[in-house]
């Protein structure tokens, strides 16, 4: 039953990636050129909606959070730096590659998925000599910001949402975006 939910949620996830246009090379790379910020808008909207929903539900005692992704500062940053290179180079990420493969994009289905599987082999086989050392530095464990800074989590989530909405306002109304050069 749980797997059926996973499948349905996966379909909706892939569907949203397709509709947001994130399965296209130019959409992903142009967020790094600030000429099309759809990726940022999509990610931040999802993040804020889920944040407000989950923190409210937790306040009402209706959900328990699963294990929060661990914070180990050096590793989160080094991993992010490596990840950004791949994302700007290839114009996709793990989720959008799979969704794009489902759309019939053979570029994503064949070299894309082979690349992710090769990366998974490489990581799995070098894990023991790389990860424990990096994760041991500045490790805060499964912490969340409101607890770390001792702030009311609902107020913090609301403040975050307001900042995001202000950013969207700057992008869409005040034109905080670069013009696409003709290539």
């Amino acid at each position: 039953m749980n797997y059926l939910f996973a499948f349905i949620l996966g379909i909706l996830f892939g569907f949203s990636l397709n509709k947001a246009g994130l399965t296209k090379y130019h959409k992903i790379v142009n967020v790094f050129r600030f000429t099309d910020l759809a990726v940022l808008k999509f990610m931040l909207t999802a993040l804020v909606v889920a944040m407000l929903g989950l923190y409210s539900l937790r306040e009402m005692g209706l959900v328990v959070f699963p294990a929060v992704p661990a914070t180990y500062i050096t590793g989160n940053i080094i991993g992010g730096l490596i990840f950004g290179v791949g994302m700007a180079l290839a114009g996709y990420c793990p989720g959008t590659c799979v969704a794009g493969a489902g759309e019939g994009k053979l570029d994503y289905l064949i070299p894309g998925l082979l690349g992710f599987f090769s990366g998974a082999i490489l990581y799995g086989l070098t894990y023991q000599s790389v990860f424990p050392k990096i994760a041991a530095i500045a490790n805060y464990g499964n912490v969340v910001l409101p607890d770390l800074w001792n702030l009311n989590s609902i107020l913090f989530a609301l403040l975050f949402a307001l900042i995001a909405i202000f950013l969207f306002y700057l992008i869409d109304r005040a034109g905080l975006i670069r013009k696409n050069k003709s290539l």
Partner: peptide, 23 residues
């Protein structure tokens, strides 16, 4: 195809170190 393949390796390795990917 070469760049997508190499990009996939970089992305998956970076996600491993970081503790997850974009999603």
């Amino acid at each position: 195809w070469l760049i997508l393949f190499i990009g996939g390796i970089i992305l998956e390795y970076g996600a491993g170190i970081a503790g997850g990917c974009t999603s």
